[in-house]
Design a protein around this nucleic acid. Sequence first.
DNA 1: GCCACGTTGAGACTGAGTCTCGACAAACGG
DNA 2: CCGTTTGTCGAGACTCAGTCTCAACGTGGC
Lengths: 146, 146
Amino acid sequence: MDEPNPIIDALDLAGYQLTAPRRAVAGLIHSYGGHFTALELEAAARDRRLGVSRATLFRALELLTELGVVERIDLTTGEHAYVACAPAHHHHLVCSRCGRTADVEDSGVAEAVAQIARRSGYRIDSHRLELFGLCRHCQAKTNLSA
Amino acid sequence: MDEPNPIIDALDLAGYQLTAPRRAVAGLIHSYGGHFTALELEAAARDRRLGVSRATLFRALELLTELGVVERIDLTTGEHAYVACAPAHHHHLVCSRCGRTADVEDSGVAEAVAQIARRSGYRIDSHRLELFGLCRHCQAKTNLSA
DNA sequence: GCCACGTTGAGACTGAGTCTCGACAAACGG
DNA sequence: CCGTTTGTCGAGACTCAGTCTCAACGTGGC
């Protein structure tokens, strides 16, 4: 129940009150290994009787997004999802089978972006890269069943 | 009125009927130089009395997205927008001031993606890169006013 | 105790997108 | 020429995502 939770730490560090609803949402988010949608989060909160209202849920998500410990990603299906992650610039690698996500460093991408900036004449301020594929685990499963 | 429109061509090529509503939506989309939201498209259709219902509008968008001549992008603000573009793999460069968009080739990005795949062990099937910044035009304006 | 402020829950509201259903029109087959 | 099939459309209900307002509450400072 009281396992270390970087999300709560981040809230604390940023000077926000560690209220019960915020702890509850943080715990919920922390328990996801991959991405989750607003609907899923809502349902999970309801199932576990967290007593957290929708407004508070979204407020918490907004807060955490601002702090950088949660990010919104857009799946290939067009759905929105959220992922817990480290508050540093990075990109998301999403397994399209199991939904597991991994953070990847910018390595190589920044260069490519700089090149694009040079060619296009745009001054590029930010970029977002999302990668979709199969994680090791799901690749193995695919090979077995094939 | 009857200027060449690659969107209509794409519909034709794919064997879809070139009905009046579809032509109207295609014309509307073609007239945007940058991105547009569903709401804007709706409003524009209403303003110009195109007589196109919301359902048809979305159906057209879906169709065109499938054909690859329209893509959905996600702005930094979290909004969804659509852009008309060429039906080839590329990325979008969005001016955060004026909304103008440009397509850029994959140049360099594919390599970086391959590298990420190697390191992570994921089999990467697709990726999406979105770039935000200032276009040449808006940079110039900024310099003048500074 | 009182006040200010941060936080919350309830619920209305908006925007995006989907779905269903009934109508219509072009295409097709006889 | 007629009937059927298929594609498309409009209207409107519906769902999900997210925002906003407002009243209530708790905590900490004074």
